[in-house]
C-alpha cells in the first residue's frame, strides 16, 4: 500500500494510503542548556537574578527565584521564539484600544525587557541616591518593586506596571514550569506545593479520596525509568 507524506512540492503535503508514521519520529521540547546568558547582558542578568529573588524569596519552603533558575528561564525564553513574539499577529496599524481588546504593542518581550530593565534601574538610581537595584538592601528592593507594581515609581518612556506584570508572570512561569526550561530547579516548586509532576497514570489514585499521593516527584527529563 502506498504510504506517503510528501512535503510542500506539489499540491501540499499529501497523506494517502496509510498513517504517515515513522519509527523514532518525535517532537520533543527544546531544553534550556548550558551556562551563562543567551540574551541578557551580564548587568541585565544580575539585575533579573536580584529581582526574581525578591519575587520568590529563599525561605524554608524553597530556594529563591535565583537558585531555582528563574532568570535563566527568562533569558532562554527571550533568546527563543517567545522573545520575538513568533506566532503573534504583528501587522499594523498599532493603535491603542480598550483593555478588553488586549495588548496592542509592537514591542516584543525581548525589546520590552531591554528597555524596561534599563528604565527600572535608572528609576532606582534616582530614588536611592545613585544606587543600582542590585546594590539595594532587601527592603529597598521590595520598595522599588512595589513602586512599579502600584505605579508610584514611574519609568521613563515605559509603563512600569506593564513591565512589572511581564516580569512577574515570567518569573512565576519559570518557577512552576517543567525544569527542562531552566527554572524550577530540582522541581523545587512542585515539591513545595505537593504536585508530583509529570506522571501519566493515576488510575491507582483516582479512587483514593482524600489521601496524599506518595509517588516520587518527576519531571520530563527525570522520569526514573528513562534516565539513570
Amino acid at each position: 500500500m502506498a504510504l506517503a507524506l510528501s512535503a510542500g512540492a506539489a499540491r501540499g503535503a499529501i497523506v494517502k494510503g496509510g498513517l504517515p508514521w515513522k519509527p523514532g519520529a518525535a517532537d520533543p521540547p527544546t531544553a534550556a542548556v548550558g551556562e551563562g546568558w543567551r540574551y541578557f547582558t551580564p548587568q541585565e542578568g544580575a539585575l533579573v537574578e536580584a529581582f526574581v529573588d525578591r519575587l520568590i524569596p529563599p525561605d524554608q519552603l524553597s530556594p529563591g527565584g535565583k537558585d531555582c533558575g528563574c532568570a535563566i528561564f527568562i533569558d532562554r525564553q527571550l533568546a527563543g521564539p517567545q522573545g520575538r513574539f513568533e506566532g503573534y499577529y504583528m501587522s499594523g496599524p498599532f493603535q491603542k484600544g480598550t483593555k478588553q481588546q488586549g495588548p496592542q504593542s509592537p514591542m516584543t518581550p525581548a525589546q520590552h525587557y531591554r528597555k524596561g530593565l534599563a528604565a527600572f534601574d535608572a528609576a532606582c538610581r534616582s530614588k536611592f541616591s545613585g544606587k543600582s537595584f542590585t546594590q539595594l538592601s532587601g527592603d529597598e528592593k521590595d520598595q522599588a518593586i512595589k513602586g512599579i507594581e502600584d505605579g508610584s515609581l514611574k519609568l521613563e518612556n515605559l509603563d512600569g506596571q506593564d513591565f512589572f506584570k511581564l516580569i512577574l508572570k515570567d518569573t512565576q512561569n519559570g518557577f512552576l514550569a517543567d525544569p527542562i526550561y531552566g527554572g524550577n530547579k530540582d522541581m523545587a516548586s512542585w515539591k513545595m506545593i505537593g504536585f508530583p509532576g509529570t506522571h501519566y497514570d493515576y488510575r491507582d489514585w483516582i479512587d483514593r479520596h482524600n489521601q496524599r499521593v506518595t509517588l516520587p516527584t518527576v519531571a520530563i527529563n527525570t522520569h526514573p525509568n528513562w534516565t539513570s
Binding site: 503535503a13 504517515p20 515513522k22 518525535a26 520533543p28 521540547p29 512552576l176
Partner: peptide, 22 residues
C-alpha cells in the same frame, strides 16, 4: 500539519504545561 498520536503526543513529553497550555 498532519498530527499523529505516536509522534506528536508522546507520553515522554505530552505533560508539558508551559509548552502546550501557556
Amino acid at each position: 500539519p498532519w498530527r499523529d498520536t505516536g509522534t506528536d503526543f508522546s507520553i515522554a513529553y505530552a505533560q508539558d504545561e508551559l509548552r502546550y497550555r501557556i
